[in-house]
Nucleic acid binder design. Structure first.
Length: 573
RNA sequence: UGCCCGAUGGUGUAAUGGUAGCACGACAGCCUCUGGAGCUGUUCGUCUAGGUUCGAGUCCUAGUCGGGCAACCA
């Protein structure tokens, strides 16, 4: 068990579960479930739910089911089923034999519907979608009784049977619960239970042409599986009375639904619909684009399952709708990678450094520490020669005293190598651009220490120009340039408004055009030898991950996980 | 002008009638062969108004603000 699971967690849901166990409710059983609809890839918000559902089961010795809530064939696909299982497993959870599909319960659900009809608690309604809405009314006005509401049980049974038999086209009829058209809760105004959809289902094929709605199906799924604690997000709170009503009316086992706040992160979006839009519109390379908040995207970016679990633990479970700063997520991966990632040297924006007094054809090997936080990681040899690459930003022709790097006349340390003193630059006559930085080195400082005890303020990293290689490196910035991409900017350029259904204006207007930058970096030999899917720290730059998909033998391609804190940039900006 | 839910530093959370704590961030100092990491310190909070109580972030009332609900989506 990882450290992320070390101390016991406590929140209002866990307290409730503990109380139920203590009082013997549900005979002390704890059964939770994670019920994704297979219509998209899992994202970090789902990770919060997964950690809760599976976490509670683990902590209490209970079980957590993985159940696909596949009641709408038009939006669902096996591609999503597979990815969801992969992501849950990757996160570190195991459903054992408890893998279920709502579609496996369709026959039982149908029987429940028959019972409701027989008991006079459901009826077939012929209203069109528009008429349906009109009769339902609005929050501030009561609904009105629908025409088919008092149809006889026999006729309802007959119609419902014919709906199943495929006699009617989509939308011709719908099965509704008979509850209360005057309820202040819209969901209780005779909600739809079944709708006709002549659509093939990814599991049941053409067996069905009518499918249960979420409200009817979900409670029954929980009931059939004898779930004890049905946890979901806040937007389902208003559905709870219906959840309870339906299970009572069906006279079946009744779990309890409890709601918690979903996760929102700054600078990203967390709705499957919007993420799908980014994928289909090619704003990103796919669901697993490292800029995406999807689990596969984060994984490819280089986030570890452990860091995500720690993050979820840190965020906690409440009913307060919040917007979590993404730096909290970043903190957890930095914390882990600082302990575990091997250090290597790469120059992202190279400029040549020529050591004038270093022998022309000499190459020597210097010893570098692989991880100062972990002695067992050992050391490695790094080649060094007369010509090196250093970062363009590590040299300035003119600098103030706060700039501790290379500038004419100043001495700095080349990490693990020598002290060098800048002697000048070589410029392109035409453009005036600096082509080379020149310096001299002090042979007595080999390894990076001065025998006379003199000190330098700065240490810069470097790559041997003759023995080093190159690698593609992707640098990432936030996917969106504003904290809440869903909120439309007040700027005149994007004066879009929200429509009444709550969908946002054009959130894509807030996409950050600079979220991806690819550079060809100069890298030390050890980097070329890295395989796919390995973490490392490019010293003084950040943590990187060799892309699991695009890396090739001898040619790793890197994704920046997260940059190192840069207090110089902060100070000078 | 319906119903439901919520409100603690910049952010996320804890305190279950008894010292408002923790993490992240920010700032300052120390240390450092990564301007990284680490260490030390500082800053900053109970939405408002009444009430109950010896004592209220917590309980009650009213208000304010925020979110959700008007798919035959989940």
């Amino acid at each position: 068990m990882s450290k992320a699971d070390a101390e016991p967690l406590s929140d209002f849901i866990r307290d409730k579960v503990a109380e139920d166990v203590a009082t013997g409710k549900y005979d002390g059983r704890v059964v939770t479930r994670f019920p994704p609809e297979p219509n998209g890839y899992l994202h970090i918000g789902h990770a919060k739910a997964i950690c809760l559902d599976f976490g509670i089961a683990e902590e209490t010795g209970g079980v957590c089911h993985l159940r696909f809530d596949d009641t709408n064939p038009e939006k669902e696909d096996v591609e999503y089923v597979d990815s969801i299982m992969e992501d849950v497993r990757w996160l570190g959870f195991d459903w054992g034999e408890h893998l279920y599909y709502a579609s496996d319960y369709f026959e039982k659900m149908y029987e429940c519907a028959i019972k409701l009809i027989s008991d006079g608690k459901a009826y077939v309604c012929e209203l069109s979608v528009d008429a349906f809405k009109e009769y339902r009314g609005v929050p501030t006005r009561p609904g009105k009784l629908t025409p088919g509401r008092d149809r006889s049980v026999e006729e309802n049974l007959d119609l419902f049977g014919r709906m199943r038999a495929g006699e009617f086209e989509d939308g011709r009829y719908v099965l509704r619960a008979r509850i209360d058209m005057d309820s202040p809760n819209l969901h209780m105004r005779d909600p739809a239970l079944y709708r006709i959809k002549h659509a093939p289902h990814h599991r049941t094929g053409d067996t069905w042409c009518l499918y249960p709605t979420y409200d009817f199906a979900h409670g029954l799924e929980d009931s059939i599986e004898r779930v004890t604690h049905s946890l979901c997000t806040l937007e389902f709170e208003v559905h709870r009375p219906l959840y309870d009503w339906l299970l009572e009316a069906c006279e079946v086992y009744r779990p309890a639904q409890t709601e918690f706040a979903r996760l929102n992160l700054t600078y990203t979006v967390m709705s499957k619909r919007k993420l799908l839009e980014l994928v289909e519109g090619h704003y990103v390379s796919g669901w697993d684009d490292p800029r995406m908040p999807t689990l596969c995207g984060l994984r490819r970016r280089g986030y570890t399952a452990d860091s995500i679990r720690r993050f979820c633990r840190g965020v906690g479970i409440t009913k307060v709708e919040s917007l979590t700063d993404i730096s909290l997520l970043e903190h957890h991966i930095k914390d882990e990678l600082n302990r575990t990632a091997r250090r290597v040297m790469a120059v992202l924006d190279p400029i040549k450094l020529v050591i004038e007094n270093y022998p022309e054809d000499q190459v020597e090997e210097l010893e570098a520490i692989n991880n100062p936080e972990d002695e067992s990681a050992g050391t490695r040899a790094v080649p060094f020669s007369r010509e090196l690459w250093i970062e363009r930003a590590d040299f300035r022709e003119e600098a103030n005293r706060k700039f501790h790097r290379l500038t004419p006349g100043r001495e700095v340390r080349l990490r693990y190598a020598y002290f060098v003193t800048c002697t000048g630059v070589v410029k392109d006559d035409a453009t005036g651009e600096i082509i080379e930085v020149h310096c001299t080195y002090d042979p007595a400082t080999r390894g990076g220490d001065a025998p006379d005890g003199r000190r330098v303020r700065g240490t810069i990293h470097w790559v041997c120009a003759t023995k080093g290689g190159e690698a593609d490196v992707r640098l990432y910035d936030r996917l969106f340039s504003v904290e809440r991409p869903d909120t439309v900017d007040e700027g005149p350029a994007s004066a879009t408004t929200r429509d009444s259904a709550g969908t946002s204006g054009n959130f894509k207007d807030n996409l950050n055009p600079d979220s991806l930058t690819t550079v060809r970096a100069k890298v030390e030999p050890a980097i070329l030898a890295m395989g796919a899917g390995e973490h490392c720290q490019f010293e003084r730059k950040g943590y990187f991950f060799s892309d699991p998909k695009d890396s090739r033998e001898g040619a790793p391609r890197f994704n920046q996980v997260v940059p190192l804190r840069d207090s110089w940039r902060k100070r000078s900006s």
